[in-house]
Design a protein around this nucleic acid. Structure first.
Ligand SMILES: [Mn+2]
Ligand SMILES: [Mn+2]
Ligand SMILES: [Mn+2]
Ligand SMILES: [Mn+2]
Lengths: 218, 218
DNA sequence: ATTGTTGTTTAGATAAGTCTAAAAATAAGT
DNA sequence: ACTTATTTTTAGACTTATCTAAACAACAAT
């Protein structure tokens, strides 16, 4: 039996540590969980005790095979619910995350299998992130950040690094969505801002936007 | 801010006390919540403190207007989710309750409003229980228990008192569902068992079944 | 190699929800 | 009315998840 809090810590370790395989520092975990380092240490011990995490004092934490299984399953549920909210309940992509954070902890195998089928086995969530199948497999999405994109080349928007409401609304306001075609016109060396062309229009975006928007070549 | 546990206690008081207006004993509440009387006392104090409950020592507990609002909203969510599971995700009426117990605590006004619309504003859940609208209003379902039904009269099955898996499966096995037409052939005074006719077939049912099956005259 | 800085762990406290055991209030029986 | 029996409340303890403050380990830097 696994608690909601344990699930959230496991998910955070997974995201911070490149699928949970790389060691994550106590401070990084505490920061991600909005708690203090001492709380993170306590939870890490508990996860290690339950064989969800590998842990040696002062050496950081990573996930065991069991821990990874748990993480992938929660991510699967989170992303399926996000698809449900957008496709069936008229949510926009900036409205789904907080609700999915709650729904991802509902325990019912039938529920998630049926939901998957009801949504016609989607492979990506509303933010372009891949959805693991029921065996935990999911494809790697080929992508570059806008910051690393080449001048003069045409790209398609395939994802975001930051799913915060503020960033997604910024994209909405500038008519950038998954599938939008983007060409890099000029990368300014001084402040790393980028001038791009989207569907004819020209737009100047900051370095932060550049780092959080994922593209693939068109 | 209200916790999941508080919500469940409030719901229990509502169900035990005829919409929360009648006083409920500490023992009855503890029994319904599968806890001990001492735990119930603690929670009752907390609910009174937060103005969800009326409480005087040794005098039992009832809900305030606020408490009733909370209860009705949870029941609304519970029943809408049950409809969703049956109508959209191929659940049977005996499979939905436990999952709905989890889903009823998801906090999002938009979610429940959109779900309501998505399901086409259903008025009853899969067990025949009425679904409160977004203002908390719901119709009283006119019903008699099979035990109180008159011999020789035709009835329609409109609900169940007990939503347990065992009882609902018993009904499934005997082809009794909402809408099934039932005629009372004979009520046995000795053990209060009842002989009924359903769609031609004859069936003998116990007193317990009689008390848990709700009918209305046809 | 000693010092200083940062990162991590431990010790001790707190709040929510639960329990057992004991005390107090109410209800029932004679 | 007095004595039981039942119900309810209180007292004290435990678990989970959190915190602050203090101790300890690791890493840099001179
Ligand atoms: Mn999300
Ligand atoms: Mn997402
Ligand atoms: Mn139910
Ligand atoms: Mn129901």
């Amino acid at each position: 039996m696994i608690t909601l809090t344990e699930e959230n810590y496991i998910k955070a370790i997974f995201h911070l540590g490149n699928q949970g395989s790389v060691t994550v520092s106590t401070n990084a975990l505490a920061e991600a969980m909005n708690t203090k380092a001492s709380s993170a240490t306590d939870m890490i011990k508990k996860l290690a005790e339950k064989n969800y995490a590998n842990y040696k004092k002062y050496q950081g934490v990573s996930l065991t095979a069991d821990g990874k299984r748990v993480a992938v399953n929660i991510i699967r549920k989170h992303r399926l619910w996000e698809v449900f909210l957008v496709d069936k309940l008229n949510f926009t992509w900036d409205q789904v995350h907080d609700v999915a954070e709650q729904l991802e902890h509902i325990k019912s195998q039938k529920l998630i299998d049926e939901l998957d089928a009801f949504l016609d086995f989607p492979t990506h969530d509303p933010h372009g992130d891949p959805i693991p199948d029921k065996h935990g497999k999911f494809e790697h999405v080929e992508k570059t950040s806008l910051s690393n994109a080449k001048e003069g080349v045409n790209y398609i928007c395939v994802g975001v690094n930051d799913s915060s409401v503020d960033f997604l609304k910024y994209l909405n306001n500038n008519a950038i969505a998954l599938g939008t075609v983007i060409k890099v016109l000029h990368k300014e060396p001084f402040d790393h801002s980028i001038k791009i062309a989207i569907e004819g229009r020209e737009l100047m975006v900051s370095q932060i936007v550049g780092k959080n928007l994922f593209l693939k070549e068109n």
